[in-house]
Design a binder for these strands. Structure first.
Lengths: 146, 146
DNA sequence: GTTTATTATATCGCGCACGATTTATTGTTA
DNA sequence: TAACAATAAATCGTGCGCGATATAATAAAC
């Protein structure tokens, strides 16, 4: 009846589905590393800048601490990170990579970029299409965030 | 170190974030209707074609039945759908809209398209940008699905 | 300096997603 | 027809996301 309510006309359903399928494509490679996709995101944040409080990690990922805290607790159990109270501000938990967490960067570099390339080798999108897609997604993200 | 592992170079993180933020933008309007976003997707499927078995709904949404079955059970408790065994194939559960479920279509039509328009009124993307975005997402989805 | 407000993190509950397994029904084969 | 395979749902366990609330430490206001 209402074309605005047809599934095929929903950008959001496409986003939702594409996200799930891309995450599923990552999963076998991440399972090999013993981590999940959100854990991989946290590791990318820490590989770029180690020793961050929970809040900074959450802000970088646009997540709430009630998502990130349990995520970090699981990662601590896996031996990927350690958390210690901030010296100047005892409310903060400073999250740091362990040797195991640092070592995963090279493992990820060896398998994930080429692995995802293979997954998308039949995708008709070219480099410039991915760049434009990134810009369009950034427009949506910047409009809705905060 | 490795630019392939920088968060800012990840299409997948952008998809993941954009999906979460768009879903969050829907949430207040959906809460008004008493439903969640995945439940809204199921309703859109049924508004388009009522009386479908669980498998058809799952295929349409590219989800597994172990996600859809509990989703439908919750929707049945809410009085939005009813499930009854298929007549010719007793393994199937045929899902049908209740009057309450049907009535939500008009409620959704009144609030959601204009509400999302307001959320995105400062987004620089134009109609043709959204159309291209939809095509790009479809390329990714079609490459990875099945 | 004590009260009050803010901030950083943690905890709790619920609803997805999804891998793995189970149960019931149907289809196929010997 | 009996045995076996395939299919449709359901169940179970784990890990997110996130609204709501709680706790502890710091900052601000009086």
């Amino acid at each position: 009846m209402h074309p605005e309510l047809l599934l095929d006309n929903q950008i959001c359903f496409r986003l939702y589905t594409a996200t799930r399928l891309v995450t599923q494509a990552y999963t076998p490679m991440l399972t090999e590393l013993g981590i999940t996709y959100p854990q991989y995101l946290v590791l990318m944040v820490l590989w770029e800048h180690d020793n961050q409080p929970v809040n900074d990690i959450a802000h970088r990922l646009l997540l709430e601490t009630n998502t990130v805290t349990p995520l970090l607790q699981r990662m601590e159990k896996l031996g990927l990170v350690v958390r210690q109270r901030g010296k100047e501000d005892k409310r903060q938990q400073i999250v740091s990579l362990t040797e195991k967490g640092k070592a995963l960067e090279e493992q990820a570099y060896k398998t994930i970029p080429t692995g995802m390339g293979k997954e998308l080798r039949f995708c008709p999108l070219k480099l410039e299409d991915y760049q434009r897609l990134a810009q369009e997604l950034d427009s949506i993200i910047n409009t809705l965030k905060k």
